[in-house]
């Protein structure tokens, strides 16, 4: 089992953050909420590992 990585892991964090916010810029609050839900599901599927996902759910609490 791999461990949940909570250390810096994105090469360009400012660029990523910018892109994330920009993805929401034309959306209503409701659309943004739905977008976030889809994004979480897509990222969760990419991670796949159930133990890592469980640890992420815990870390976000």
């Amino acid at each position: 089992m791999r461990e949940l990585n909570l250390e810096p892991n994105i090469a360009d964090p400012d660029g990523f953050y910018d892109e994330l916010i920009a993805a929401h810029s034309t959306l209503s609050k409701q659309e943004s909420d739905a977008f976030n839900a889809r994004l979480v599901l897509i990222l969760a599927n990419h991670i796949g590992d159930r133990a890592v996902l469980a640890a992420a759910l815990e870390a976000a609490k």
Binding site: N5, L6, Y17, I21, H24, S25, L27, S32, N36, A59
Partner: peptide, 29 residues
């Protein structure tokens, strides 16, 4: 100065996580 409600939600989520996790510190600007 987050420009939308969602931008502020993400900003505050980053600040909230930054106290605990290194990855979020790299996003605090």
């Amino acid at each position: 100065t987050p420009k939308s409600d969602m931008s502020k939600i993400f900003r505050n989520a980053v600040l909230n996580l930054a106290g605990k996790y290194g990855f979020a510190r790299t996003m605090v600007n």
